[in-house]
Amino acid sequence: MPDGDALERLAHLVGAEQDGAVVATVVARGRAEIEVRPDAIGSALERLRHEGYTMLMSVHGVDYHPEERRLGVVYELLSMQLQDRVTVKVRVSAEDPHVPSVVADWPTADFHEREVFDMFGVVFDGHPDLRRILMPEDYIGHPQRRDFPIGGEPVIFTETERRNPGWWK
């Protein structure tokens, strides 16, 4: 992972592309992360691609529920040349969950962005085919948000079954 100085340099380069793009940088426990503004994600990833981080390994969502701007999208980049990883994060609110899609430059983000849409409700503008991928197509709700109930069946024991005949209906 790039250490503190290397990450600051990367963040500076990313911020040079677009003013105010970089919101925060975090280096902790072997993880180097740059948080950018949502509209600057495309240019940030391109800048990092020029720095050698050529493979986008994963795009996943996080729900920071009680905090503001609760929906986060995390992009994990890998550099084969430098054998290094760097992370880019974007945070949007649930009321306006729009993030520009990076599928045009990084084809691998296709399924990943569909999954983030399915599970968290982040809408990726510019994605060619933003449909639900894991849940049924007509499902309502975004399951992996923190305030979505876990669901499931109550555990039925023999005695409760006798008390609730016909529980399967």
Binding site: M135, G152, E153
Partner: peptide
């Protein structure tokens, strides 16, 4: 048979 290890929104026991 039942919900198994995963008692959540996504799966359904066959008896249903």
């Amino acid at each position: 048979s039942s919900m198994g290890v995963f008692n959540n929104y996504a799966i359904v026991p066959a008896d249903k």
